[in-house]
């Protein structure tokens, strides 16, 4: 008896539409026309019985004949040339202008092609594969570029650069996120991209004292505003302020003018705002509900 691989080799050349190349019509105008026609139809309650006969349906909805015709034209374009050959087993699972997702082993690898794209383009790609993954790509301070800076949901997620260790400021360098194919539930995460000149960072919850940041290595948490401002000036930076308002297990930040801040107020954290500017998160007094890094 022939092995399954041998049978596959016998049968593949018989496929009228080749198995080695994607059809590549999903993004076309005809696909869009059919889609538009279908969703224009009223949804009916699901019936448990077998589908009615095809022709009966067409009589009931003559517009379908028109949309079938659009598919015929598409098929003609695909089927005209003979496509013989073998697949190499690698395929793009989904791609749009913003992201390209391919399957590798038990994971989907999503390559962010356009970090500036509408975030809905990322989500639609994952939804197409049946996954509820929301991605935002946000401008971040240097130490967070190319990293997952915020995540909700559990699972083994990874982010890497393609090609490995490239500079994300280069056009040929991409972030690629890996999520399990068998992912359950909703996942949301923010990915950090380099900020454009003058653009403000959005990772304000991350400290500017981390390695690679503008205040790398400085001790700021729990110290007075005056002390921290001295450090800020020493590094040639300017400072903005926000007021830390502590609630039930969380806190919020409110804008604060410099002249409202006392020299002996206490700094909780310092975040980068943009190149050359940091923001001191402060309270009038030391607040026991906050966890200071120096504790």
């Amino acid at each position: 008896m022939k092995a399954i691989d041998e049978i596959n080799e016998l049968l593949r050349p018989l496929a009228r539409i080749g198995t080695d190349e994607p059809v590549g019509l999903a993004g076309g105008a005809r696909a869009q026309a059919l889609f538009t026609d279908i969703i224009a139809q009223e949804r009916q309650p699901t019936t448990a019985g077998p589908p009615r006969r095809l022709r009966d349906r067409y009589r009931a909805r003559p517009t379908l004949l028109g949309l079938a015709a659009s598919v015929v034209l598409a098929l003609g374009a695909v089927l005209g040339p003979s496509l013989l050959g073998y697949g190499d087993g690698t395929s793009i699972s989904y791609a749009n202008s913003a992201v390209e997702i391919r399957e590798e082993a038990d994971t989907y690898v999503a390559r962010i092609k356009d970090p500036y794209a509408d975030q809905r383009r990322f989500s639609e790609a994952f939804r197409a594969l049946g996954l509820n993954v929301e991605i935002k790509v946000i401008p971040v301070s240097p130490a967070s570029v190319g990293k997952i800076v915020m995540m909700q949901g559990a699972g083994p997620f990874h982010i890497r650069r393609e090609p490995a260790d490239c500079d994300l400021a280069d056009s040929g360098c991409f972030m690629a996120v890996t999520v399990p194919v068998a992912l359950k539930g909703a996942i949301r995460f923010d990915l950090g991209r380099p900020a454009k000149p003058g653009e403000s960072y959005e990772n304000e919850w991350q400290s500017a004292t981390r390695a690679g940041e503008q205040l790398a290595g400085a001790k700021v948490s729990g110290r007075s505003v005056d002390d921290v401002l001295a450090e800020v000036r020493k590094r040639g930076l300017t400072a903005e302020f926000s007021l830390v308002s502590v609630g039930e297990g969380s806190y919020e930040l409110k804008p604060l003018a410099a002249d409202q801040v006392g020299a002996n107020w206490i700094v909780y954290k310092v975040a980068s705002v943009r190149v050359g500017v940091v923001r001191l998160q402060v309270t009038p007094e030391r607040n026991p509900a906050l966890e200071y890094e120096s504790d």
Partner: peptide
């Protein structure tokens, strides 16, 4: 629907065409 449509359109075209 749009998501699953876009993801499977090519595959169903090929499935039916074959």
């Amino acid at each position: 629907f749009e998501a699953v449509y876009r993801a499977t359109y090519d595959e169903i075209i090929a499935y039916a065409g074959r």
